[in-house]
Write a protein that binds this DNA or RNA. Structure first.
Lengths: 139, 139
DNA sequence: GGCGGAACGTTAGCCGGTAAATGATTAGCC
DNA sequence: GGCTAATCATTTACCGGCTAACGTTCCGCC
């Protein structure tokens, strides 16, 4: 049966669908907000750094960067001192999305957790955190 | 910040990676065990039925069925009475995976939730269930 | 009995995700 | 200084997921 895995999987799909439609309102695809968040935090990061921050592999970031570069959210530029490195820089359009997208994300989080009491939410975070740690160790 | 969404996302990626390597031990790709589970429960189901059971769209099931048919886990056959319908039938190879795959899945669930007490697990399921319900309603 | 709409599966095209192979550049060691 | 090894990004080729368009087949109604 695997109850927890099943529930987690169902929840993941529902949340993904919600995030998808929420981000599409800003012209983004699922996950692109995370990449932007990494650049909002540290503009000029390399694909490898971003991949690590996003818990994702480098090719994923490379492909997303290519698309987001095509839609004018960021630009690719080689590092001056080390030509192996590539640095991703936000455009004005990419920077402009910060406030609305962060608000959208906060709103989604609030709506999703609205049915929980303060205590329930705290317990949920703790328990899920433990599951995450167990999973990381098994990786 | 969106704490819960962030933690949930990280956990999802870790769990996905674990499930991936676990299922690869049986020659399956991520998610194919769910499709098989649907057929173990009701052999001869249609793609549409399976999609509904898996909370997934029909095209996804169709593509997976094509690949799994190529690897000999199931066969496609048109319904005798209604030629619009297609029914997926397990092969011996598909049936043979039931015990080992279900055991693998139970083992994974156990390992993942090993760090939680009985009470914590129950609270986690309840709280996550509420999040799931909220998400479903917002869909 | 024929015709239009409904119910299915399939195809095409896109996105995020992965692993493995490729290519370019730097760093380090002899 | 030159050769080798390490470090990056990129490409290729998959897989699961989605939406939208398409083609069949059945059903109901006139």
């Amino acid at each position: 049966m695997a109850e927890f895995l099943d529930l987690h999987s169902k929840t993941t799909k529902a949340l993904r669908a919600l995030a998808e439609t929420a981000m599409r309102r800003h012209g983004l695809h699922q996950g692109q907000d995370h990449l932007l968040a990494a650049l909002w935090e540290r503009d000029g990061s390399t694909p490898g750094e971003i991949a690590a921050a996003l818990h994702v592999t480098t090719p994923t970031v490379v492909k997303m960067a290519t698309r987001m570069s095509a839609t004018g959210l960021l630009v690719r530029r080689r590092d001056e001192h080390d030509s192996r490195l590539v640095r991703l820089w936000l455009t004005d359009a990419g920077r402009a999305l910060r406030e609305p997208v962060e608000a959208e994300r906060r709103g989604l989080e609030d709506k999703i957790t609205a049915g929980l009491t303060e205590t329930e939410l705290r317990q949920l975070m703790t328990a899920l955190g433990k599951v995450y740690e167990s999973a990381r160790e098994l990786l």
